[in-house]
Amino acid sequence: MGIFSRLAEQKIEEAVRNGELDNLPMAGKKLPVDDLSHIPEDLRMSYRIMKNAGYVPEEVSLRKECIRLYDLLNAAQHDGEQEQLRRKLNEKQLRLQMLLEQRGLGSSGAFMQYESRIRERLVDE
């Protein structure tokens, strides 16, 4: 056992003795499964760190923003408001497309098929 492992064990034992771990939110419950099996093993730890830090990849946040703008556009009643939302939506979609092309996702046949299915579902709802 390395020095860091020993120090960690000592700190945990000390916290247990002091009752610092008694009122944790998940006490007595199973921890949620953090399934990263689709991520290559050498990248899993970095993905977990980013996820725990609240980092969201730009393409994910852009997609969410596009969906939000699309919903707002459908709810807008004034022409000026609709035009402003349409302009913002077009800008976000263009940025997303550029980002996906930079990352090599925009030209993938499988990605394009998947994207069209998602787009169809969003439009139908």
Rank of each mutant, 00 (worst) to 15 (best):
M1V: 11
M1L: 13
M1F: 07
M1R: 05
M1W: 09
G2Q: 08
G2W: 04
S5E: 13
S5V: 06
R6F: 10
R6P: 01
L7Q: 14
E9Y: 14
E9L: 13
E9A: 15
Q10T: 12
E14Q: 15
A15C: 12
V16E: 15
V16A: 12
R17C: 11
R17M: 14
N18A: 15
N18F: 12
G19Y: 10
E20R: 11
D22Q: 14
L24K: 10
L24G: 07
P25I: 02
M26C: 09
M26H: 10
A27M: 12
A27Q: 13
A27T: 05
A27F: 06
A27C: 09
G28R: 07
K30P: 01
P32H: 09
V33I: 13
V33P: 00
V33A: 12
D34C: 09
H38P: 00
P40W: 02
E41L: 10
D42N: 15
L43T: 02
L43E: 15
L43N: 07
R44C: 04
R44M: 04
M45K: 10
Y47C: 04
R48S: 09
K51P: 00
N52G: 05
N52R: 07
G54A: 05
G54R: 07
Y55V: 11
P57C: 09
P57R: 08
E58N: 03
E59Y: 01
V60G: 01
V60Q: 03
S61Q: 06
S61R: 09
L62K: 01
L62S: 01
K64I: 05
K64R: 14
K64T: 06
C66G: 01
I67K: 02
I67H: 04
R68Y: 05
D71V: 04
L73M: 07
L73W: 03
A75Q: 11
A76K: 00
Q77R: 09
Q77P: 00
H78T: 02
G80P: 00
E81P: 00
E83A: 09
E83F: 01
Q84E: 14
L85G: 02
R86W: 05
R87D: 15
R87H: 13
K88I: 02
K88D: 13
N90R: 13
N90E: 14
N90L: 09
E91P: 01
E91C: 07
E91R: 10
K92L: 03
K92I: 00
Q93T: 06
L94D: 13
L94R: 13
R95G: 01
L96E: 03
L96D: 02
Q97K: 14
Q97H: 10
M98Y: 08
M98L: 14
M98G: 14
L99P: 00
L99N: 01
L99D: 03
L100K: 02
E101Y: 07
R103M: 08
G104Q: 08
G104C: 08
G106M: 03
S108R: 12
S108P: 01
S108L: 14
G109A: 15
A110N: 13
F111D: 12
M112V: 11
Q113F: 13
Q113T: 11
Y114F: 14
Y114L: 12
Y114K: 09
S116C: 07
R117G: 02
R117M: 12
E120Y: 06
E120Q: 10
E120M: 04
R121T: 04
R121C: 03
L122F: 11
V123Q: 14
V123G: 01
D124F: 06
E125I: 06
